[in-house]
């Protein structure tokens, strides 16, 4: 969509989102984290999902947000690569100091 087309859509949305039962993109933004944790109270969840249905910008935004989250979570599985880089002298240092008196 062209820039002017988007501006037009935004103006229409600006009016639409003031209707009862509607929330703005800004309010939608504030609900995202809790929505993804599935902890939004039912009434707010309905508002959130209705906004999602009518607002393409927020749909695309949420998709990119989810993708970011998935890519971040994929980093959790990054342990194996480190296995070989544990310095042997670190292991020895830890084992050597274990019999020392704890520092006071």
């Amino acid at each position: 969509m062209s820039k002017s087309g988007r501006t037009m859509t935004r103006r229409m949305h600006g009016v639409l989102f003031k209707f009862p039962g509607m929330i703005t993109c800004n309010e939608f933004e504030d609900f995202i984290l809790v929505y993804l944790e599935d902890e939004l109270p039912p009434a707010k969840k309905r508002l959130f999902e209705l906004h999602l249905k009518v607002c393409k910008s927020c749909r695309l935004y949420l998709a990119a947000y989810r993708r970011t989250l998935a890519a971040t979570k994929a980093l959790q599985k990054d342990y194996d690569a480190l296995e070989e880089t544990v310095p042997q002298d670190l292991i020895e240092a830890i084992l050597a100091t274990k019999d020392d008196k704890p520092p006071r």
Partner: peptide, 19 residues
């Protein structure tokens, strides 16, 4: 993200690809 005076999103939207 940025919003206009009506609380509407103003960023340039894009579609994420299948991954």
């Amino acid at each position: 993200p940025e919003f206009d005076a009506n609380g509407c999103r103003v960023d340039d939207p894009f579609t994420v690809s299948e991954t």
